[in-house]
């Protein structure tokens, strides 16, 4: 112990230097986005290669169990298929609104704008009709906005054409998700962010809601990819999305009520407490 202290005292200059550098590095990695992404990427690469090597070894020993599980799953699916075929023959399948998590309330847009940076719309249904904040607004051709303020007979909130609001969106064909936001310029186009480079894209790919946000159910239409490119130095694609809804003519909408929203939020708060 004493010799350790002596050692520390003799090299105090070096250790103070190292300590200050460690503090700096912590600051850098915590507060500078660019370095954080780089740091995480490289540490992920290391851990990923370790995991892969281990997995290559252990996969062989799991093969038998895996086969059994697959066989079981096959059997299960076959029984299900059988039942479905029977049901189809008798035509007793109810395909409308099977998902009862969401309830839809029809309404009309009575005020709307497209030419500001922060556009809001007003709807002719309010608290007395069962409207609550955080309900999504869907038009005949996809997502329109979300309710934030409710009075007895009316409700209002930002439309998709609002720079403060973004929607969790995904690409329909491969389910990669990002967030759709509006840059305040053209009411027909929005931007899809956070799609990494390795994802294969094509013009015309459909963008739908991801269903992660508890406001919209999964699979509501948002738009199609109009153009995309990736700038060198950026980590994500820049994707221009042609919105499917025409915000200049919007009038009939449906409000989406998520019956389980409280439950979902309660559950997610538990995660934040960690």
């Amino acid at each position: 112990m004493r010799s350790l202290l002596q050692f520390l005292a003799r090299n105090s200059f070096l250790f103070l230097f190292l300590a200050l550098e460690v503090v700096s590095m912590i600051l850098i990695v915590n507060y500078n986005n660019f370095q954080r992404v780089k740091f995480l990427n490289s540490s992920n690469r290391i851990s990923a290669s370790i995991y892969k090597t281990t997995d290559d070894f252990t996969a062989y020993f799991k093969l038998r169990k895996e086969n059994e599980e697959l066989a079981n799953e096959n059997a299960r699916l076959r029984t299900k298929l059988q039942k479905l075929q029977v049901a189809e023959i008798f035509g007793s399948l109810d395909t409308t609104r099977k998902d009862t998590t969401y309830q839809f309330i029809p309404a009309r847009v009575i005020n709307n704008s497209v030419n500001k940076q922060y556009n809001y719309l007003t709807i002719n249904k309010g608290a007395l009709d069962g409207i609550e904040p955080d309900m999504g607004i869907i038009g005949p051709r996809g997502v329109v906005g979300v309710v934030t303020n409710v009075t007895d007979h009316y409700s209002s909130g930002p439309s998709l054409l609002n720079k403060r609001w973004r929607v969790s969106a995904k690409i329909k064909k491969n389910a990669y998700f990002g967030s759709l936001s509006w840059d305040g310029s053209d009411y027909q186009y929005a931007q899809l962010n956070e799609i990494p480079f390795h994802v294969e894209l094509a013009k015309g790919d459909t963008i739908i809601t991801s269903g992660y946000s508890s406001i919209f159910p999964e699979g509501i239409l948002l738009g199609v990819i109009d153009d995309f490119n990736h700038n060198s130095g950026a980590n994500f694609y820049q994707i221009k999305v042609k919105l499917s809804s025409n915000f200049k003519t919007i009038s009939n909408v449906e409000l989406v009520k998520n019956k389980h929203i409280k439950e979902q939020e309660k559950l997610e708060i538990l995660n934040n407490n960690d």
């Binding site: 200059f13 230097f17 200050l20 550098e21 600051l27 850098i28």
Partner: peptide, 30 residues
């Protein structure tokens, strides 16, 4: 030791004003 601390300090001050926490601090400490 004071040299190191002062280097860290002035680097940190520059960092705070230029929104790059830690970068100048580490370089100045070095």
């Amino acid at each position: 030791y004071l040299l190191l601390l002062l280097g860290f300090l002035i680097g940190l001050l520059v960092d705070i004003f230029s929104n790059t926490p830690g970068m100048h601090a580490s370089a100045a400490t070095f």
